Amino acid sequence: MNAPDFWWTQDGTWQSRLLSPFGALYGYLATRRFKYIPRYKARKPVICIGNFTAGGTGKTPFALALNTLLKDAGHKPGFLLRGYGGTHKGPLLVEPAKHAAMEVGDEALLLARRGPTVISADRTAGAKLLEQQDISVIIMDDGFQNPSLHKDFSIVLLDAKTGVGNSRCIPAGPLRMPFKKQLQRVGLLMVVGDGEASAKQQEQAQKAGIDLMHAAIRPVSADALEGERVLAFAGIGRPEKLFASLKEAGATVVETMAFPDHHYFTKDDARLILRVAEEQDLLPITTTKDYVRLNGREEQSISRLANVASVLEVEMKIADPDALLERLTHVLETVKA
């Protein structure tokens, strides 16, 4: 499912009020689980990249940016994630040439291109497999609320434009558990993008003594899109991010198609996208995460879409990477027996 619009309505709606008792129960149970003592402490430092809400805030682009930063500083990062959207429960060392998005999830394939990547529904088992690889630090993509594995440091991303929505828990709102409860285990708050919706949460974090840093998602090369008429399609947490990025790049977004997060495109989906694009002479364009779910498939319509579609590649730009590296020094220098 895509996140419902009422999640992001600050003043609340009848839907969020109706669902608030269920949200309160969900938040209570999540908070109890959050307090569990981790079952395992990895022999390598674990840096967790998380968010407060359901949906995308750029965790995977940030994990990739952090990977580059750490490699440049002489470290050997490896990635650990659940493999959401894939059928394999793990633990499994992902091989891009061998595994498909349907098996391991789109995020795992993207990360595996940059370094050793393990997927596992059981994060403890995944960490143990990753420890066997040639790595010196574990970057855990998502799993901030998962208590099974000890985190040495947690960087939590906060979207400046949306904040935490209506501040209610699933299903009444986007929060995975009450904000103040989550704040207790945040090592660093990374504010992504520009906007005022997260001002209250930033203030609360600062009062709690949590450092704030900033980052932004930017297209890698968008000059070629200037004036291009496009059909934008995406199955990510917030497809509107793609649409907005294309407009900022100068493209004319004529048609948009939003699919559920981690959507596995069908032949009918591909035919529809191709038909609309051809009828209006539009360039089909999507995200890197969506493209890995198209590429390499044998169905004729999907293969054709993969051949004609363009990809808007984006990267996370950390405002002060040196300050971030300095902030992580005490974690990275921890000696693990």
Results as ranks from 00 to 15, higher is better:
residue 1 M to K: 08
residue 1 M to R: 08
residue 6 F to L: 05
residue 11 D to E: 06
residue 14 W to E: 09
residue 14 W to C: 07
residue 14 W to N: 09
residue 20 S to T: 13
residue 25 L to E: 11
residue 29 L to W: 09
residue 30 A to C: 02
residue 31 T to S: 04
residue 33 R to I: 01
residue 37 I to W: 15
residue 42 A to L: 08
residue 44 K to S: 09
residue 45 P to C: 15
residue 47 I to T: 13
residue 48 C to S: 03
residue 48 C to R: 11
residue 49 I to K: 06
residue 49 I to E: 04
residue 50 G to M: 01
residue 56 G to M: 06
residue 62 F to V: 13
residue 64 L to E: 11
residue 71 K to V: 07
residue 74 G to E: 08
residue 80 L to H: 02
residue 81 L to P: 10
residue 87 T to C: 01
residue 87 T to V: 07
residue 95 E to S: 01
residue 95 E to P: 00
residue 101 A to R: 14
residue 102 M to N: 12
residue 102 M to R: 15
residue 103 E to G: 01
residue 105 G to T: 07
residue 107 E to C: 00
residue 107 E to H: 00
residue 110 L to E: 02
residue 111 L to C: 05
residue 112 A to S: 05
residue 113 R to Q: 09
residue 113 R to F: 03
residue 114 R to F: 04
residue 119 I to F: 08
residue 125 A to N: 13
residue 126 G to P: 01
residue 127 A to K: 08
residue 127 A to Q: 05
residue 127 A to I: 05
residue 128 K to W: 02
residue 132 Q to H: 08
residue 132 Q to K: 13
residue 134 D to S: 02
residue 136 S to T: 10
residue 141 D to H: 03
residue 142 D to C: 00
residue 144 F to W: 06
residue 150 H to I: 10
residue 152 D to H: 15
residue 153 F to T: 07
residue 156 V to H: 11
residue 158 L to W: 11
residue 159 D to V: 00
residue 161 K to M: 05
residue 161 K to Q: 06
residue 165 G to Q: 09
residue 168 R to A: 02
residue 172 A to H: 12
residue 175 L to M: 09
residue 175 L to G: 03
residue 176 R to Y: 10
residue 179 F to M: 06
residue 182 Q to R: 13
residue 183 L to H: 13
residue 184 Q to E: 01
residue 185 R to H: 12
residue 191 V to S: 13
residue 196 E to T: 02
residue 198 S to N: 05
residue 199 A to Y: 11
residue 199 A to C: 01
residue 200 K to S: 04
residue 201 Q to D: 03
residue 201 Q to H: 10
residue 208 A to R: 15
residue 216 A to K: 15
residue 219 P to H: 10
residue 219 P to Y: 05
residue 226 E to D: 15
residue 227 G to F: 14
residue 228 E to H: 09
residue 229 R to A: 08
residue 233 F to D: 04
residue 234 A to D: 05
residue 235 G to F: 05
residue 249 A to G: 02
residue 252 T to Q: 13
residue 256 T to N: 07
residue 259 F to I: 08
residue 261 D to H: 04
residue 261 D to P: 00
residue 264 Y to D: 06
residue 268 D to E: 01
residue 269 D to C: 02
residue 269 D to P: 00
residue 269 D to R: 14
residue 270 A to T: 11
residue 271 R to I: 03
residue 272 L to Y: 10
residue 274 L to G: 12
residue 275 R to V: 04
residue 275 R to S: 07
residue 278 E to D: 10
residue 280 Q to D: 09
residue 281 D to F: 12
residue 281 D to W: 14
residue 284 P to H: 14
residue 284 P to L: 12
residue 284 P to Q: 14
residue 287 T to E: 05
residue 288 T to H: 08
residue 290 D to C: 02
residue 294 L to A: 15
residue 297 R to N: 14
residue 299 E to Q: 14
residue 308 V to G: 04
residue 311 V to L: 11
residue 314 V to M: 09
residue 319 A to N: 12
residue 319 A to E: 09
residue 320 D to P: 06
residue 322 D to C: 02
residue 324 L to H: 12
residue 331 V to N: 12
residue 331 V to Y: 15
residue 332 L to S: 12
residue 332 L to K: 14
residue 336 K to Y: 12
